[in-house]
Design a protein around this nucleic acid. Structure first.
Lengths: 343, 343
DNA sequence: CGTTTTACCGAAAACGTTTTCGTTTATTAT
DNA sequence: ATAATAAACGAAAACGTTTTCGGTAAAACG
């Protein structure tokens, strides 16, 4: 009924708790005979060490925290998958928390993780996060931290990212290459670094190809869970404001898909009238009609790399080695599909 | 640097650890004055109780385990979201594990959770799970368990499900109602209760409406992460075997979408030539062309209910009250879209 | 003034481990 | 034979809490 303890094993065998503990961990100063005895009994009693006692003693919880803005999200669920796969390999458990894109929640959750004494934390910032005190608190308390995807450049820690600016540049250039002359951009919120970078990449591509940048062609979307609706709205607005637009680079696939359905409802042909490039390569984008050109964002790999970085930091901390912050940048690629196929 | 402890507060204030602990928890036998003093110092020192020490003492980890077959999945990510939202409200943290539809992994993960002394576990079974010893072990150790969606009827615990049979019946009847005469079924794997029930619902609907059930019209899909490809394959096979089929009820939207793209590639019109109903209402289904009729499966709510049930059990266990197993059944609905719109 | 009550505080045990440092017995060397 | 070494084990402290049970002092009572 109640979980078995070392003490019970010790009593049944008439030896001390110390010896039992050592036997199970193969200490050299316990005889082979007793080791065998102890291990056997532990097996039959189905002994499992009480991880809380272990942690209390060793200061290692073998648990990490993961804070993510939104779970129901193709990219993030791939990240989660990558993280827990990698964590499992190294014997770590992951506690998952969702910030719902809220700064307050994010802050609160870091407090929680701190009190749970996790060995490290992995975070992708909420859209609303513009202040980084909570993160610096973590760092001050010396709990390893790595940020991924939605990062803050100013915070001094390891990061894993893609080159959003370059990817956006590529996407926009692609629109230019297929002959678009008047290219709009549905950007993400103002705070997150990645939507800033994507915007900058868009702008740079225009400038480099002698297309004057027109701020009125940039629409802001929240890119929250309701992205789809936002895409529709922005599409409608664009139709009213600028009927001459012939290409759009859109911050997220889901927004792009919302926009596409709205354009189609108005009888506007994609890509003939307006070509569209999205971002993230949601699975959906490959099955809608027309299929959506987009930037491939390697979620699973990002999760994997993020954990690897964190693992190295945790390991170094344990051995009192200096920890060095690294930033790994993952490759992205343009996926050309029907939404940009002008022949 | 190192986390603050009760002892340090006690020393700074020149009082005992006991009093500090009690002051923080508002015990009646400590004066208001000392309470204020203690709380103030705790605040300024940023004291956070060591949760492992607390757990060791109180036997309550305030943590639950969640085992899910596949994280990258529209339905399951909604479930996850529902669970962590609800858990957070009650001050519980959730450790997430992915079984990858593997029985061995699932078993191993339960072991892990057991050794982590979680207060309860939430599980949706892997496709490959046909043996339930690991679950009965959990129950034997008296850790509250609730299963959701992919359950085992034979295991004695609380469950939250939908009426798969009824939903499948409704879906199939819908195909009949719009005039389909020869209706195929792409079913899920053989083990999971829900794919069995959906198959039975399909069969029953046929029988009740005087359509002879033809086993050769039932195709088996794994419904794993590669569902999309499976849908394509089964669609091709069906085309070869039974060109007279005019309606299909498909176990999962993703499979259905795979099938649809393949049918369309062959120039077969949906719904004119073949009408299709999927299952789960993935967001994607509302944006593809034609939009896919499907059964709405309330993932978020299922997660919420599952946690509520678990919470009640954990609470009862704590108070040594008897725990009664409940099964809550959530409502589903048919969503009619273009893929079944024959006029 | 002595006695009981009340208010406040602290010592100590307990939770289940891990690890340091002794202690005992058996073995080898001198 | 004794002394030195090796092999095997255990006592005890520690990790940071919570909670029980007494104890002391002041206040209230007769």
């Amino acid at each position: 009924m109640k979980p078995v303890t070392l003490k019970q094993i010790a009593e049944q065998l008439g030896i001390s708790v110390t010896t039992v503990s050592k036997a199970l961990k193969d200490y050299p100063d316990v005889s082979k005979k007793t080791k065998k005895l102890v291990k056997q009994l532990a097996e039959t009693l189905n002994y499992k060490p009480n991880s809380f006692a272990v942690t209390l003693r060793t200061k290692e919880s073998k648990t990490i925290g993961l804070i993510i803005p939104e779970v129901v999200h193709h990219f993030f669920s791939n990240v989660i998958k990558g993280i827990i796969a990698q964590a499992e390999k190294k014997g770590y458990l992951v506690i998952i928390l969702q910030s719902n894109e809220s700064y307050d929640l994010e802050k609160q959750q870091i407090e929680l993780l701190l009190s749970k004494r996790v060995d490290g934390v992995l975070i992708s910032l909420a859209n609303a996060t513009g202040d980084y005190k909570h993160l610096n608190d973590l760092i001050a308390q010396e709990v390893p931290l790595v940020m991924f995807d939605k990062i803050a450049k100013i915070v001094n820690c390891s990061k894993v990212i893609i080159n959003d600016r370059k990817a956006a540049y590529t996407a926009t250039k692609h629109l230019i290459d297929i002959g678009c002359k008047r290219i709009a951009h549905f950007r993400g919120p103002l705070l997150p670094q990645n939507s800033i970078d994507r915007f900058l990449g868009y702008k740079q591509a225009l400038i480099d190809h002698n297309i004057t940048y027109d701020p009125s062609l940039v629409y802001i979307c929240d890119c929250s869970i309701k992205s789809f609706e936002e895409g529709k709205q922005s599409a409608n607005q664009l139709l009213k404001d600028h009927s001459d637009v012939d290409g759009i680079f859109i911050n997220t696939d889901l927004v792009a898909i919302g926009a596409m359905t709205e354009f189609q409802r108005h009888g506007i042909k994609i890509p003939e009238d307006i070509a569209i490039v999205g971002f993230s390569n949601w699975f959906m984008s490959s099955v809608i009609s027309p299929t959506l050109s987009t930037i491939d964002q390697p979620g699973y790999q990002m999760g994997k790399e993020a954990f690897k970085l964190l693992y190295k930091e945790m390991k170094n901390k344990k051995q009192n080695l200096p920890i060095e912050y690294k930033t790994v940048e993952l490759e992205t690629g343009l996926i050309e599909r029907e939404s940009t196929k002008k022949n």
